[in-house]
Design a protein around this nucleic acid. Sequence first.
RNA 1: GGGGCGGUAGCUCAAUUGGUUAGAGUACCGGCCUGUCGAGCCGGAUGUUGCGGGUUCGAGUCCCGUCCGCCUCGCCA
Length: 594
Amino acid sequence: MLKRTCTCGDTRKENAGETTTLSGWVNTYRDQGKGLVFIDLRDRYGMTQVVFDAEDTPKEVMELGGTLRREDVISVTGKIRDRDGKPNEKLPTGEIELVAKEIEIINRTAKLPILPDDHDADKIGEEHRLKYRYIDLRRPRMQKILQLRHKITQFTRNFFADREFLEIETPLLITPTPEGARDFIVPSRHQAGQWYALPQSPQIFKQILMVAGCDKYLQICKCLRDEDPRADRQAEFTQIDLEMSFIEQDDILALMTEFATSLYKEVGGVDLGNLPQMSWKDAMDNYGSDRPDIRFDLQLADITELAKKTDFKVFNEACDAGGSVKAMRVPGGAEKLSRKKTDAYAEIAKTYGAGGLPVVKYQDGEFVTGVAKFVTPIKEELVEALKLEDGDIVMFGVGTYRVACTALGEVRLAVAKELGLIPEGMFRGLWVIDFPMFDWNEDAGRWVSEHHPFTAPLATHLDILESDPANCLSSGYDLVINGAEVGGGSIRIHNPEVQAKVFGLLGLSQEKAEDKFGFLLNALRFGAPPHGGIAFGLDRLVMMMIGTTNIRDVIAFPKTQTGADLMCEAPGIADPAQLDELGIIMRQPAESTE
RNA sequence: GGGGCGGUAGCUCAAUUGGUUAGAGUACCGGCCUGUCGAGCCGGAUGUUGCGGGUUCGAGUCCCGUCCGCCUCGCCA
C-alpha cells in the first residue's frame, strides 16, 4: 500500500515542490478530457485537489485517474504544486494541488445509495442516512460533530481530573428498581426467571461511591430508558455524571458554573456570561416553564384574583377548582398576530391540557375581539397589572396552576419564534433551584418525586417533609441554557431515616423499600458523608453547540423512534436455543403466523 | 396508547378531475472536452409507485387494513 505522508487537510503553499502521498475518498471528479482530470480527495482532515495532467502524469496513471468515481478509495503520490493565480478559495488547501505520479486504487465503491455531500445531504431522508450511516458519517458536517463531541468529553475529563475527580465505571447490568423510567431488562442465564436492568443512570452507584470514600467521581456513561423518544431525546443517551462529598449546594453550583462557562468558552467559543439562579416557582410563574428561555423577555403574569371578578365561565371554573389564570402581554401583537395565528396558538395550548387560549386586543383604550366583553369590567386593573399599551394583545392561560403556566409558556415560545424575538447566536443560561420535592400524581393517587427519590429536602424544609409535602422544597437544581435542560442534580439524602421517610411518601412500604433499595439504605447506615452531584446531557451539549435540534445528528449510531438501529437491524430475533437456555418461552403474537 | 405529516428510479422530487408509454434533476454507464473546483456538452440504462386487499372499463391518484420514517401529547424519577 502506498502509505500516506500527510492528510488531505494539511498541505499549504509552503509545501510546494514536496513529494507527498495522500490517501482518502474521491469526493468528486472532474474529467476535462483526455489530458486532464481533477479529483477532490477527502479524508477526515480535509480535502485536497489532485490533478492528473498528461504533461506531468505517467500514461498508465493518467488512464487510471480517468476511471475514478465518487467514493472510490485511493492513495496517490505526487508533487505539490502551487496553483498560482487560480486558488480554490473554498478550501484551506485551495492554494495547492497534488500532481499525480503514482496511484493505488485501494477499493472501488459499489453503486452508492447516498452521497456524503454536505451540499445536498441535508435533503436525504433520514432513513437512508441511518441505514448507510458509514457513508453519512463521511460528510464534513458529521465529522465535525464527532470531533466536537470528542473535544467536549476531553475537556470534561481534563477539567475534572485537574480537580481531583476520579473516573470510575459503574455496572451496566444492575437490578430493576421501581420509580422512574421504564427499564430495559436483560435475562439472567444463571438464575433463570430473574432479570437485570440496564441503568437509567448510575445514580445509586455514584452515591455509594461517596459512601465508599471516593470523594469526587466522574463518569461519561450511557443511560438507558425505555421510553418513547423525541427529536431531542433518545432511549440510549450519554451523561456526564458527577458526584462530590462534603459539599453543599452552593459549592456544586459554583464549580459547575465554572465548568459550563469554561466549556462553552473554550470548546464552543461562546460567552455564557454569569449563570443567575431562579427558583422553580419564579420560572413557572414568569416563564411558564421549569426550563425558561431567558434570551427574550415576554413574561407571564398571574391574574387569578382579577379573573375571579369577571363573569367569564372559563375563568370562573378554573378559579373555583383552585386553578390559575395567567396572562401574557405581547407588545404590538394586535397587528402582528392574525386570527389565524392566535388560533394556532390555541391549538398549542390545547395540547398542553388547556381548554383553549382566550385572547383580547387592546386598542384605542378598549378591549376588542375575543373575550373583550368578559375582561372589560376589569379593564383598569388589567391594564395596570400588565402595563398594557395601545396595540397590545393579551393571551390567557387557564387551568390548574401547572396547566395554565405551561400552556401559556409554550405559547410564549411560539410567539417569540414567530415575532423573531430570539436573538441568533445568543446563549443564555441559568440555574433553576428550589424545586418542589413532590408532585401529586392523580392517576397513581400518590406523591411522585419531582427530581428523584434520593434528592434531599432543603435543610430548612426538613420539618415539613411529612406534614406538608406539597410545599416542601428540594435541593435539586437544573442547568438550563436557551430553554433546554442541559443538566440537573441535587444534594442527596445521606441519612437513612430521611430516605426511608421519602420512600414512605412515595408510597413505598418499608418492606418494599428494603427489598428494592436496601443496599442503598444499608450503605447510608455505615457512615455516609453528605454528598451531592449533577449529570449533564452530553448529547444536548453537543446539539446546542453545533446548532441542531435533532439528537440523532450528534450520535454516531442512533436509533429511530421505534428503537430500531436501521444499520445493524437491531432489535433482532434470538435463536430459540438462546431463549431456551434463558428459560424464556415466547408467547406467539396471534397475528404473526404468516 | 392518542394526534399530525410523509413513503413514486440508487438519491431528491413531479405526475391536472381517476385516463395514452409514470417524468425531471442528480448519481451511474458510454461519448466529447487541457484548468476544473456543485465542471460543462451529447447520449443511454434505471420503477413491485412501501406492502395487502377493495371500488372502477381504468388506480401513483379514491376506500379499508398494515408496515416503515419523522414531528408531537402522554411518558421520560
